[in-house]
Design a protein around this nucleic acid. Structure first.
Lengths: 123, 123
DNA sequence: CGCTTAGGTCTACAAAGCAGACCAGGTGCA
DNA sequence: TGCACCTGGTCTGCTTTGTAGACCTAAGCG
Protein backbone atom coordinates (compact mmCIF):
# COMPACT_ATOMS: atom_id res chain seq x y z
CA UNK A 1 0.00 0.00 0.00
CA UNK A 2 1.24 3.48 -0.81
CA UNK A 3 2.79 4.72 2.37
CA UNK A 4 2.02 8.29 1.50
CA UNK A 5 -1.72 7.75 1.58
CA UNK A 6 -1.42 6.79 5.21
CA UNK A 7 0.48 9.93 6.02
CA UNK A 8 -1.98 12.09 4.22
CA UNK A 9 -4.84 10.45 5.98
CA UNK A 10 -3.14 10.81 9.32
CA UNK A 11 -2.39 14.49 8.92
CA UNK A 12 -5.46 15.59 7.02
CA UNK A 13 -8.12 15.43 9.64
CA UNK A 14 -6.61 17.15 12.63
CA UNK A 15 -4.13 19.58 11.08
CA UNK A 16 -5.06 22.32 8.62
CA UNK A 17 -1.63 23.81 9.19
CA UNK A 18 -0.03 20.76 7.67
CA UNK A 19 -2.45 20.97 4.81
CA UNK A 20 -1.39 24.50 3.95
CA UNK A 21 2.26 23.81 4.52
CA UNK A 22 2.03 21.00 2.03
CA UNK A 23 0.71 23.55 -0.42
CA UNK A 24 3.23 26.28 0.28
CA UNK A 25 5.77 23.62 0.86
CA UNK A 26 5.49 23.15 -2.81
CA UNK A 27 7.88 25.75 -4.05
CA UNK A 28 6.21 25.91 -7.45
CA UNK A 29 2.71 26.65 -6.23
CA UNK A 30 3.73 29.88 -4.55
CA UNK A 31 5.86 30.88 -7.47
CA UNK A 32 3.01 30.31 -9.90
CA UNK A 33 0.60 32.28 -7.73
CA UNK A 34 3.04 35.16 -7.45
CA UNK A 35 3.51 35.13 -11.21
CA UNK A 36 -0.25 35.27 -11.72
CA UNK A 37 -0.67 38.17 -9.34
CA UNK A 38 -0.26 40.91 -11.95
CA UNK A 39 -2.92 39.28 -14.12
CA UNK A 40 -3.96 36.48 -16.45
CA UNK A 41 -1.25 34.39 -18.05
CA UNK A 42 -1.08 31.61 -20.63
CA UNK A 43 0.77 28.36 -20.12
CA UNK A 44 3.87 29.25 -22.05
CA UNK A 45 3.98 32.72 -20.58
CA UNK A 46 4.15 31.15 -17.15
CA UNK A 47 6.90 28.86 -18.37
CA UNK A 48 8.92 31.79 -19.64
CA UNK A 49 8.37 34.04 -16.63
CA UNK A 50 9.14 31.38 -14.06
CA UNK A 51 12.05 30.20 -16.11
CA UNK A 52 13.25 26.98 -14.55
CA UNK A 53 10.09 24.94 -14.14
CA UNK A 54 9.48 21.89 -16.31
CA UNK A 55 6.33 21.57 -18.38
CA UNK A 56 5.30 18.60 -16.34
CA UNK A 57 5.57 20.34 -13.01
CA UNK A 58 3.86 23.46 -14.27
CA UNK A 59 1.00 21.38 -15.62
CA UNK A 60 0.69 19.43 -12.39
CA UNK A 61 0.93 22.52 -10.23
CA UNK A 62 -1.71 24.38 -12.22
CA UNK A 63 -4.03 21.41 -12.02
CA UNK A 64 -3.75 21.25 -8.27
CA UNK A 65 -4.16 24.97 -7.82
CA UNK A 66 -7.29 24.85 -9.92
CA UNK A 67 -8.55 21.91 -7.94
CA UNK A 68 -8.04 23.75 -4.69
CA UNK A 69 -9.76 26.85 -5.99
CA UNK A 70 -6.77 29.19 -6.12
CA UNK A 71 -6.91 29.76 -9.86
CA UNK A 72 -9.28 29.40 -12.79
CA UNK A 73 -8.47 27.80 -16.12
CA UNK A 74 -10.17 29.01 -19.27
CA UNK A 75 -9.80 27.18 -22.55
CA UNK A 76 -10.47 28.99 -25.83
CA UNK A 77 -11.24 26.35 -28.46
CA UNK A 78 -9.08 27.85 -31.14
CA UNK A 79 -6.22 26.45 -33.12
CA UNK A 80 -3.55 26.56 -31.92
CA UNK A 81 -5.17 26.21 -28.50
CA UNK A 82 -5.21 29.05 -26.01
CA UNK A 83 -5.52 28.48 -22.28
CA UNK A 84 -5.59 31.26 -19.74
CA UNK A 85 -4.97 31.06 -16.03
CA UNK A 86 -5.87 33.65 -13.43
CA UNK A 87 -6.21 34.05 -9.70
CA UNK A 88 -9.53 33.61 -7.91
CA UNK A 89 -10.53 35.57 -4.83
CA UNK A 90 -9.07 32.79 -2.74
CA UNK A 91 -5.81 32.98 -4.64
CA UNK A 92 -5.58 36.71 -4.12
CA UNK A 93 -6.42 36.44 -0.44
CA UNK A 94 -3.69 33.86 0.00
CA UNK A 95 -1.09 36.18 -1.44
CA UNK A 96 -1.84 38.77 1.18
CA UNK A 97 -0.22 36.99 4.14
CA UNK A 98 2.33 35.73 1.67
CA UNK A 99 3.40 39.27 0.98
CA UNK A 100 4.33 39.73 4.61
CA UNK A 101 6.62 36.76 4.26
CA UNK A 102 8.17 38.10 1.10
CA UNK A 103 8.72 41.42 2.84
CA UNK A 104 10.44 39.63 5.69
CA UNK A 105 12.62 37.86 3.16
CA UNK A 106 13.61 41.15 1.65
CA UNK A 107 14.58 42.61 5.00
CA UNK A 108 16.47 39.62 6.33
CA UNK A 109 18.09 38.23 3.26
CA UNK A 110 21.40 39.83 4.05
CA UNK A 111 21.41 38.66 7.64
CA UNK A 112 20.94 35.09 6.49
CA UNK A 113 23.71 35.31 3.94
CA UNK A 114 26.00 36.65 6.61
CA UNK A 115 25.10 33.83 8.97
CA UNK A 116 26.00 31.39 6.23
CA UNK A 117 29.33 33.06 5.65
CA UNK A 118 30.12 33.03 9.35
CA UNK A 119 29.28 29.36 9.56
CA UNK A 120 31.60 28.46 6.72
CA UNK A 121 34.27 30.77 8.04
CA UNK A 122 33.98 29.67 11.65
CA UNK A 123 34.10 26.02 10.73
CA UNK B 1 28.92 19.92 -14.00
CA UNK B 2 26.12 19.78 -11.44
CA UNK B 3 23.21 21.51 -13.07
CA UNK B 4 21.83 22.57 -9.73
CA UNK B 5 24.81 24.76 -8.96
CA UNK B 6 23.99 26.79 -12.01
CA UNK B 7 20.42 27.25 -10.93
CA UNK B 8 21.46 28.27 -7.47
CA UNK B 9 23.94 30.72 -8.80
CA UNK B 10 21.43 32.13 -11.24
CA UNK B 11 18.73 32.67 -8.65
CA UNK B 12 20.88 33.63 -5.68
CA UNK B 13 22.09 37.01 -6.68
CA UNK B 14 19.02 38.82 -7.97
CA UNK B 15 16.20 37.16 -6.07
CA UNK B 16 15.94 37.03 -2.28
CA UNK B 17 12.33 35.94 -2.69
CA UNK B 18 13.48 32.73 -4.32
CA UNK B 19 16.01 32.29 -1.60
CA UNK B 20 13.37 32.40 1.12
CA UNK B 21 10.91 30.34 -0.85
CA UNK B 22 13.53 27.65 -1.15
CA UNK B 23 13.74 27.70 2.60
CA UNK B 24 10.03 27.71 3.32
CA UNK B 25 9.61 25.56 0.30
CA UNK B 26 11.21 22.98 2.46
CA UNK B 27 8.23 21.67 4.34
CA UNK B 28 10.39 20.39 7.18
CA UNK B 29 12.11 23.66 7.98
CA UNK B 30 8.89 25.45 8.78
CA UNK B 31 7.60 22.52 10.74
CA UNK B 32 10.76 22.35 12.82
CA UNK B 33 10.66 26.09 13.49
CA UNK B 34 7.03 25.92 14.54
CA UNK B 35 7.82 23.03 16.83
CA UNK B 36 10.63 25.00 18.43
CA UNK B 37 8.45 28.05 19.00
CA UNK B 38 7.23 27.05 22.48
CA UNK B 39 10.82 26.55 23.57
CA UNK B 40 13.98 24.48 23.52
CA UNK B 41 13.77 20.91 22.30
CA UNK B 42 16.10 17.95 22.05
CA UNK B 43 16.62 15.91 18.90
CA UNK B 44 14.36 13.04 19.82
CA UNK B 45 11.72 15.34 21.21
CA UNK B 46 11.55 16.99 17.80
CA UNK B 47 11.32 13.57 16.17
CA UNK B 48 8.42 12.61 18.38
CA UNK B 49 6.54 15.90 18.13
CA UNK B 50 6.84 16.15 14.36
CA UNK B 51 6.06 12.50 14.01
CA UNK B 52 6.74 11.59 10.42
CA UNK B 53 10.16 13.02 9.71
CA UNK B 54 13.15 10.75 9.24
CA UNK B 55 16.26 11.10 11.38
CA UNK B 56 18.28 12.00 8.34
CA UNK B 57 16.00 14.80 7.23
CA UNK B 58 15.67 16.18 10.74
CA UNK B 59 19.43 16.19 11.08
CA UNK B 60 19.90 17.83 7.71
CA UNK B 61 17.16 20.39 8.32
CA UNK B 62 18.54 21.35 11.73
CA UNK B 63 21.99 21.74 10.27
CA UNK B 64 20.75 24.10 7.59
CA UNK B 65 18.64 26.11 9.98
CA UNK B 66 21.63 26.50 12.26
CA UNK B 67 23.76 27.49 9.31
CA UNK B 68 21.27 30.15 8.29
CA UNK B 69 21.03 31.49 11.80
CA UNK B 70 17.45 30.49 12.59
CA UNK B 71 18.33 28.21 15.49
CA UNK B 72 21.15 27.48 17.91
CA UNK B 73 22.54 24.08 18.75
CA UNK B 74 23.96 23.41 22.19
CA UNK B 75 25.79 20.21 22.97
CA UNK B 76 26.18 19.03 26.56
CA UNK B 77 29.13 16.65 26.66
CA UNK B 78 27.44 14.02 28.78
CA UNK B 79 26.85 10.37 28.18
CA UNK B 80 24.44 9.68 26.69
CA UNK B 81 24.82 12.92 24.77
CA UNK B 82 22.35 15.75 25.12
CA UNK B 83 21.78 18.32 22.38
CA UNK B 84 19.36 21.18 22.64
CA UNK B 85 17.94 23.28 19.84
CA UNK B 86 16.23 26.62 20.19
CA UNK B 87 15.14 29.57 18.10
CA UNK B 88 17.29 32.64 17.65
CA UNK B 89 15.90 36.14 17.30
CA UNK B 90 15.89 35.63 13.56
CA UNK B 91 13.96 32.41 13.93
CA UNK B 92 11.36 34.08 16.09
CA UNK B 93 11.03 37.02 13.76
CA UNK B 94 10.49 34.67 10.82
CA UNK B 95 7.62 32.98 12.59
CA UNK B 96 5.79 36.27 12.90
CA UNK B 97 4.78 36.64 9.24
CA UNK B 98 4.45 32.89 9.20
CA UNK B 99 1.72 33.13 11.80
CA UNK B 100 -0.36 35.24 9.43
CA UNK B 101 -0.11 32.46 6.91
CA UNK B 102 -1.09 29.85 9.44
CA UNK B 103 -4.05 31.99 10.45
CA UNK B 104 -5.09 32.23 6.82
CA UNK B 105 -4.82 28.47 6.58
CA UNK B 106 -7.07 28.06 9.57
CA UNK B 107 -9.70 30.35 8.10
CA UNK B 108 -9.69 28.97 4.59
CA UNK B 109 -9.08 25.33 5.14
CA UNK B 110 -12.73 24.47 4.76
CA UNK B 111 -13.12 26.49 1.58
CA UNK B 112 -10.25 24.61 0.01
CA UNK B 113 -11.63 21.23 0.98
CA UNK B 114 -14.96 22.19 -0.54
CA UNK B 115 -13.29 23.29 -3.76
CA UNK B 116 -11.62 19.90 -3.94
CA UNK B 117 -14.91 18.11 -3.40
CA UNK B 118 -16.60 20.19 -6.07
CA UNK B 119 -13.80 19.43 -8.50
CA UNK B 120 -14.10 15.70 -7.99
CA UNK B 121 -17.86 15.88 -8.05
CA UNK B 122 -18.08 18.18 -11.06
CA UNK B 123 -15.68 16.10 -13.07
C1' DC C 1 29.77 -8.99 30.13
C1' DG C 2 26.09 -7.17 27.75
C1' DC C 3 22.00 -4.21 27.53
C1' DT C 4 20.34 0.66 27.51
C1' DT C 5 20.25 5.40 25.98
C1' DA C 6 20.90 9.94 22.76
C1' DG C 7 22.18 11.71 18.74
C1' DG C 8 23.43 11.01 14.98
C1' DT C 9 25.61 8.64 10.21
C1' DC C 10 25.38 5.14 6.45
C1' DT C 11 23.07 2.23 3.11
C1' DA C 12 19.63 0.43 0.33
C1' DC C 13 15.45 1.34 -1.82
C1' DA C 14 11.19 4.26 -3.17
C1' DA C 15 9.38 8.51 -4.85
C1' DA C 16 9.54 13.06 -7.02
C1' DG C 17 11.32 16.06 -10.58
C1' DC C 18 13.65 17.13 -14.87
C1' DA C 19 14.76 17.41 -19.95
C1' DG C 20 13.31 16.30 -23.97
C1' DA C 21 10.53 13.34 -27.28
C1' DC C 22 6.04 13.00 -28.79
C1' DC C 23 0.95 14.20 -29.94
C1' DA C 24 -3.34 16.60 -31.86
C1' DG C 25 -5.25 19.03 -35.52
C1' DG C 26 -6.12 23.30 -37.90
C1' DT C 27 -3.28 26.92 -40.77
C1' DG C 28 -0.01 28.78 -44.15
C1' DC C 29 3.04 27.90 -47.71
C1' DA C 30 4.58 25.38 -51.90
C1' DT D 1 -1.65 17.34 -52.13
C1' DG D 2 2.08 17.48 -48.94
C1' DC D 3 4.67 19.36 -45.22
C1' DA D 4 6.20 22.12 -41.54
C1' DC D 5 4.44 25.04 -37.67
C1' DC D 6 1.70 26.52 -33.66
C1' DT D 7 0.07 25.69 -28.45
C1' DG D 8 -0.70 23.12 -24.51
C1' DG D 9 -0.02 19.52 -22.88
C1' DT D 10 1.35 14.03 -21.85
C1' DC D 11 4.87 10.23 -21.81
C1' DT D 12 9.52 8.28 -21.07
C1' DG D 13 13.89 7.49 -19.11
C1' DC D 14 17.32 9.28 -15.94
C1' DT D 15 18.84 12.08 -11.81
C1' DT D 16 17.95 13.84 -7.34
C1' DT D 17 15.66 13.72 -2.92
C1' DG D 18 13.65 11.37 0.96
C1' DT D 19 12.71 7.18 3.73
C1' DA D 20 13.35 3.24 6.84
C1' DG D 21 16.19 0.95 9.41
C1' DA D 22 20.86 -0.95 10.64
C1' DC D 23 24.86 0.66 12.77
C1' DC D 24 28.11 3.57 15.89
C1' DT D 25 30.01 5.73 20.28
C1' DA D 26 30.87 5.57 25.09
C1' DA D 27 29.31 5.74 29.94
C1' DG D 28 26.12 3.51 33.42
C1' DC D 29 23.67 -0.20 35.43
C1' DG D 30 22.64 -4.98 36.59
Amino acid sequence: MPLQELKKFASDAPCPIRDVLDRIGDQWSVLVLLTLRPGTRRFNELMREIGDISKQMLSRTLKRLEQDGFITRTVYPEVPPRVEYSLTELGHSFLEPMRALVAWADQNHRTISEARERYRGGN
